[in-house]
């Protein structure tokens, strides 16, 4: 029982990070039907930039309050990734707007290779560690342990997701985004500048990715130029699980994937009689991806493609 609750909590934390990244995939797909494979790398750049700022601040004055230093890192990483997302769309995808769908997909993979290598040149091949400067309180719940950091990650994720839903459902920009997702042509007829809406979508998704990047590096205590690959692939799986193109789907898919992965890691040893260990936890994301693609390609909350008016 203890291990179940503990893994559920761990899964929720991981899941909320996946959800933040999955939202970026799903928003872009919803509007452009493009899988932005570079999105995982934007997450990585967010983590790296934040860590660079944190390192610089601590180098200048090691006595600065830890929380303040991390907040400063986030406040630089978010706009940096927003600019990056804007530039990626403008330089790599916009010229291919009318090209066959394979072209932007290959370009996306190209962009992620470029970003990985740029990060490797700037920050090196090794792990960059996240200094232990955040509050490290622990709480007991139902026999499981929850840390301050875990609570902060889930709370901040929920806050950001609520903000995003309000933006999409309640604002003029959000309405333009939803209209553009249904028909670019008709949205233009309504006076919507579709290019601006597409840029805004990349910028918003990249801001979420930056936050997720800082969260994941704080959670595991490190960042790495290659970290965006696996995280991106898992978040993409989460988006597909929820129904790609669907915002609530990304949230549900992210949470669910985190929980499946954590429970799987907790029990995989028992299930396989000790043959496989918890280091196989990454397998679950891809198992889920394959199962969804085979049995329910539209995802849990996805509509049938015919419903896309």
């Amino acid at each position: 029982m203890d291990i179940f609750v503990q893994q559920l909590i761990n899964g929720l934390v991981l899941g909320s990070i996946y959800a933040l990244v999955a939202l970026g995939y799903t928003m872009v797909y919803g509007i452009l039907e493009l899988i932005n494979f570079a999105h995982g790398e934007v997450t990585m750049i967010g983590a790296m930039v934040a860590l660079a700022v944190i390192g610089a601040l601590l180098g200048a004055n090691p006595d600065l309050p830890g929380l303040l230093v991390v907040v400063a890192g986030v406040l630089v990483a978010v706009p940096a990734c927003m600019v990056l997302g804007f530039v990626i769309e403008k330089v790599a995808y916009r010229p291919l707007r009318k090209a066959p769908r394979l072209a932007p997909l290959i370009t996306a993979i190209g962009v992620s290779i470029v970003l990985q290598n740029a990060a490797m040149l700037i920050w090196g091949r090794g792990y960059v560690s996240f200094p232990a400067i955040l509050p490290r309180g622990r709480h007991e719940i139902l026999g499981a342990t929850v840390t301050d950091l875990q609570i902060a990650i889930v709370a901040l994720s929920v806050l950001v997701m609520v903000g995003l839903v309000l933006l999409v459902e309640r604002t003029r920009l959000g309405r333009a985004m939803r209209a553009t997702a249904q028909s670019r042509e008709v949205a233009e007829l309504m006076g919507v500048n579709v290019d601006t809406v597409i840029s805004a979508t990349f910028v918003i998704g990249s801001a979420l990715a930056a936050i997720a990047g800082v969260m994941v590096s704080a959670y595991y205590g490190l960042a790495h130029y290659y970290m965006g690959f696996l995280l991106g692939l898992k978040a993409f799986s989460a988006a597909v699980l929820g129904g790609i193109g669907n915002i609530m789907g990304a949230v549900v898919g992210g949470m669910l994937l985190g929980i499946i992965e954590a429970l799987g890691a907790g029990y995989i040893g028992d299930l396989t009689g000790g043959f496989l260990g918890s280091n196989y936890q990454d397998v679950f994301a891809f198992l889920v991806l394959i199962l969804v693609l085979v049995f329910r390609p539209s995802g849990l909350l996805g509509e049938r493609v015919a419903n896309r008016a």
């Binding site: 003029r172 309405r175 333009a176 939803r178 209209a179 249904q182 028909s183 042509e185 008709v186 949205a187 007829l189 309504m190 006076g191 919507v192 419903n307 008016a309």
Partner: peptide, 22 residues
Amino acid sequence: PEGRGIFGRLTVAENLDIGAYT
């Protein structure tokens, strides 16, 4: 447009609202 170009997954009110987008 021919075929009307309604935003099927927006409400009637939202469709009208976006008509006044500019």
